[in-house]
Write a protein that binds this DNA or RNA. Sequence first.
DNA 1: CGTCTTCCTAACCTGACGGCATGGACGTCG
DNA 2: CGACGTCCATGCCGTCAGGTTAGGAAGACG
Lengths: 301, 301
Amino acid sequence: MDVDTRLLRYFAAIAEEGNLTRAAHRLFVSQPSLTKQLKHLESQLGVRLFTRSSTGMKLTEAGHVLAARVPPVLAGWDAAVSETRGAARVLRVGFLSSAANDATQDVVAAFGKVRPGWRVDLRQAPWSDPTAGLAAAEVPVALLRLPFPGEETFGVRTLFSESRCVALPSTHRLAGRDSVPFREVRDEPVIVAPALKGAWRDHWLAMSERDGREVRVGAVVERPDEFLSAIAGGYGIALVPSSASHFHSRPDVVYVPVTGVSPSEVAVAWLPDAGEAAADFVRCCLEVTRSRRTGCGTRWG
Amino acid sequence: MDVDTRLLRYFAAIAEEGNLTRAAHRLFVSQPSLTKQLKHLESQLGVRLFTRSSTGMKLTEAGHVLAARVPPVLAGWDAAVSETRGAARVLRVGFLSSAANDATQDVVAAFGKVRPGWRVDLRQAPWSDPTAGLAAAEVPVALLRLPFPGEETFGVRTLFSESRCVALPSTHRLAGRDSVPFREVRDEPVIVAPALKGAWRDHWLAMSERDGREVRVGAVVERPDEFLSAIAGGYGIALVPSSASHFHSRPDVVYVPVTGVSPSEVAVAWLPDAGEAAADFVRCCLEVTRSRRTGCGTRWG
DNA sequence: CGTCTTCCTAACCTGACGGCATGGACGTCG
DNA sequence: CGACGTCCATGCCGTCAGGTTAGGAAGACG
């Protein structure tokens, strides 16, 4: 019988949580989707795995059997993937476009010295995935920004902090300022990405600085160019890392440093069972950024 | 990293065959589909698994590693499924509508005596699947007709043979006959199902009796009612098991016994690792049919 | 040098999956 | 005892992945 291994991870999560809603939240999917997936699994097996009630889900006898057998299967598969990648001497590294920069090549070079013969396969993650492929285990290690959903389940090391700016249309009343306190812009509509959820959303909308005020959404965008156009068009503003002013400069968009919001952190994160090569890569990240910080004073971003 | 286990079986088949086309044939999918799936797997892994050439596919080093790890993973999953179903004391049995009949309930009753507390979950297979769910391992055991695709890879026991008829519109020139030699109808257009392929196709079109003559397809139908309408409408004729005359009788369709074609066999088939309960079911099938044949003379179908 | 084999690509279609909005059952609390 | 909260199920819809057929390039072979 064939199933997607994702479905097995869903089942394992539901079994652990004993609660569909909670499991859905943990897996970053909607609860109806989990309901459907689980029914699908049960129907394929022809076996009821949980008894449902308004107080939660409880494993049936057969469910217990499956719950005991699934984790080793998943572990076996994950190990197979990791060994295969190791045999190819390829380290795949996910990154958010906003988290990689000119230091990245130094990290790759350092890794090349530690692991001669290996190739680093840098994969830019789509905007919609703040985990840069880590959550789906498409990559064993990634360069990304904190906070991100599922942060607790991975190894994480912060590389450096970076202040934040507000992106404004060049015609905006605050466009000429050297710096702006966040409260002066917190009532403006904001541009958001569809995937902005949970702690990730709270961070980039600076929810903690809004005193519970409603967020007005000016536009929802999928890609960076849409994002910039939305800003330029006056549909709203957005918080971005300072380095965005380098990588996304446009005449009709200005970036003004913002005070009163926490800085954004760039980090390297890895899967629990990422393997030795990934650990080496993490070490290289830490060494390169330390020498940059303490050395010639060059700043990332 | 998440994949459908079907993809792993595809990979294993390609690795064994060393040839996409042959593997596609064995898996009953088209070769382009395999190409795409394999590329998908490689891209998810970020690793090239085969070197391609016009002479076939050859595993890379990394491919060998994966090929060694995948079978245990699949075996683990299959065992988990089988144990889970066993724990639920449910035996799921697939059947073709044309292969089950009034003896089936006797088999189920006999099984109930051998395995008290167990439930038999009879699942009618869609017309498009001559393996009745066996090939996809949706069921561990099935009642079906020989030949069927992939027959060699399963356990098979023939239960009984049944002569074949030709289904004709009641207005057909041969509709009144008591019996018809196959060569008298072999030039008529035939009604076929989309899934008619390979040996299954050869059997139901009686290819071996056509002396290499082209088959004219009168219509392609998805479901039994369409099939009957196509016959009644004069779009073509078709070979069917004699028992169809009971289960699909219609005033505008007649069934005439055909000579010169091999009989159709009803069989029980099971997965190699189907388990004890399935083995018991097979035994019950054999006992019930033997007693029916040698006993009171009642005929199946 | 044609022919066959083998794999890749393109275009199209269908079915499955995920999300949102909503409904129904059950337990809890004022 | 009624209102509310929690939890799971269902219906609808848009998107995407997987399948199929058709067509093409590259190498092996007689």
